[in-house]
C-alpha cells in the first residue's frame, strides 16, 4: 500500500480538527488520571484518623513515609516487606517464564524442523492468560488446599504426611502463586517473542548457514542479540505488571472472607493488597504506598526507554508488514 506520506496535501486550516479530535482523550486523562495522581501525592502528606465516625485530617510531612518504611517508633516496615514479597513472587515466575518462552518461540519459528499444528499450540499455551485470573487463583486454591483432591491423593499414595499442608508453608505458597503466574503468562511472552523472531532478517540466518553455524550458535549469536528490544519489552511490561500484582495473591491462601492478608504469616501479601487494605481506613498511608510504587514504576520505565532508544531497530528486518493485514 501507499507508504510515502503525502506531505504536500496537508492543509493548515484543518489543524483545529486535530486538536478537537484528541481533546476528549486529554481532558479525560487530566481529569481522571493526572488529577488523581497529583492528589495521591498530596494525600500522602496528611494524616487521616477516624475516631467515633469523625475523620480528622492533619498535615504530617513525611510521617506516612516514615511509618511505612519502618523509620518511626513502633512501626514495621510493611512497605519493604510487601515489596520483597511482590519481587519474590515476580522473579520466581519471570525467570522460568522467559526461558521457556524463548525455547518454545525458537522451536515454533525453526525453519529446519518445521512442526505441524503450530496454530493449535499457540492457542492452547496462550489460553490461561485470557481466563479470569480471580477464578484461576481460587481454582488452584481449591485443588491444592489441605483437604482438596490433590493433597488427598498424595496422602493416600503416602507421598506426603497426614498433617502436611501447602498453605502453611511460605515457600510452597510463593512457589504456587509464581507457578500460576508463570502458567498464565508464558504463552503471552512466547507469542511476543515469536513476533520478534519473525522480524529478524532471514538473510542473516542464510549467511550463518554458509559459515557453517550450528542451530545453537545461530540462536546465541544471531537470534538473541537481535531479539533484545523485544526481550526488553517483555521484561519491562512484566516487571511493571508484576509490581501491581493483585488478583492471584489476593484470592490464593488469604483466609476466609477476603481479609487481604497473604498467608502464611503475611508472606504473600503484595503492595497493591496493602493499598486495598488501607484505602478507606488510612488514606494518607495508602497514598504514601502508592507514591513509592509510582516512583519505582517510573524508574523501571525510564531505564527501559533509555535502553530501548539505543537499541531500537538496529539490524532488524522491516518487511513493511501492515499491522492487522
Amino acid at each position: 500500500m501507499n507508504k510515502e506520506k503525502p506531505q504536500r496535501i496537508k492543509s493548515v486550516s484543518y489543524s483545529k480538527y486535530g486538536l478537537l479530535f484528541i481533546a476528549p482523550f486529554f481532558i479525560a486523562y487530566i481529569l481522571f488520571s493526572l488529577w488523581p495522581l497529583l492528589s495521591t501525592f498530596y494525600y500522602s502528606f496528611f494524616e487521616y484518623v477516624t475516631r467515633n465516625l469523625k475523620t480528622t485530617v492533619e498535615f504530617c510531612g513525611l510521617q506516612n513515609y516514615k511509618n511505612i518504611l519502618g523509620l518511626a517508633d513502633g512501626e514495621r516496615a510493611y512497605f519493604l516487606t510487601y515489596l520483597g514479597n511482590t519481587l519474590r513472587l515476580w522473579i520466581l515466575n519471570f525467570i522460568p517464564q522467559v526461558l521457556l518462552a524463548l525455547l518454545i518461540a525458537a522451536w515454533l519459528t525453526d525453519n529446519r524442523a518445521r512442526l505441524r499444528a503450530k496454530g493449535a499450540y499457540k492457542v492452547l499455551v496462550y489460553m490461561p492468560n485470557i481466563i479470569t485470573a480471580a477464578s484461576i487463583s481460587l481454582l488452584f486454591y481449591a485443588l491444592l488446599c489441605k483437604f482438596g483432591p490433590v493433597m488427598s491423593t498424595l496422602r493416600s499414595w503416602g507421598l506426603v504426611g497426614s498433617s502436611s499442608d501447602l498453605m502453611t508453608s511460605k515457600w510452597a505458597t510463593s512457589l504456587t502463586i509464581s507457578f500460576i503466574l508463570f502458567w498464565m503468562w508464558y504463552g503471552n511472552s512466547t507469542l511476543l517473542l515469536i513476533a520478534g523472531m519473525m522480524g529478524i532478517n532471514p538473510s542473516l540466518y542464510e549467511a550463518a548457514d554458509i559459515d557453517g553455524a550450528t542451530s545453537r550458535q545461530k540462536f546465541f549469536h544471531v537470534t538473541l542479540p537481535l531479539l533484545k528490544p523485544v526481550l526488553l519489552y517483555v521484561l519491562v511490561t512484566s516487571a511493571i505488571g508484576g509490581l501491581q500484582l493483585y488478583d492471584i495473591p489476593a484470592l490464593y491462601n488469604t483466609g476466609a472472607g477476603g481479609g487481604l492478608i497473604g498467608l502464611p504469616n503475611d508472606t504473600s501479601t503484595t503492595i497493591t493488597m496493602y493499598i486495598m487494605r488501607l484505602h478507606s481506613s488510612d488514606t494518607g498511608r495508602a497514598a504514601a504506598v502508592s507514591v513509592l510504587l509510582f516512583i519505582i514504576t517510573l524508574i523501571i520505565s525510564l531505564i527501559f526507554f533509555r535502553v530501548f532508544r539505543e537499541d531500537d531497530g538496529r539490524g532488524r528486518h522491516h518487511k513493511g508488514k501492515k499491522v492487522g493485514a
Binding site: I22, F26, L37, S39, T40, I240, T283
Partner: peptide
C-alpha cells in the same frame, strides 16, 4: 492532522502508557 504541540501530545501518550492505574487509585477513589 498537523498542529502545534502534536509531538508533545504524542510524547505524552507514550509516556503515560506505562503508568498503571493502581498508583493513582487512592486519589481516584477520593
Amino acid at each position: 492532522y498537523n498542529f502545534k504541540l502534536k509531538k508533545v501530545a504524542w510524547g505524552f501518550i507514550m509516556a503515560v502508557m506505562m503508568v498503571p492505574t493502581q498508583v493513582f487509585a487512592i486519589g481516584y477513589y477520593r
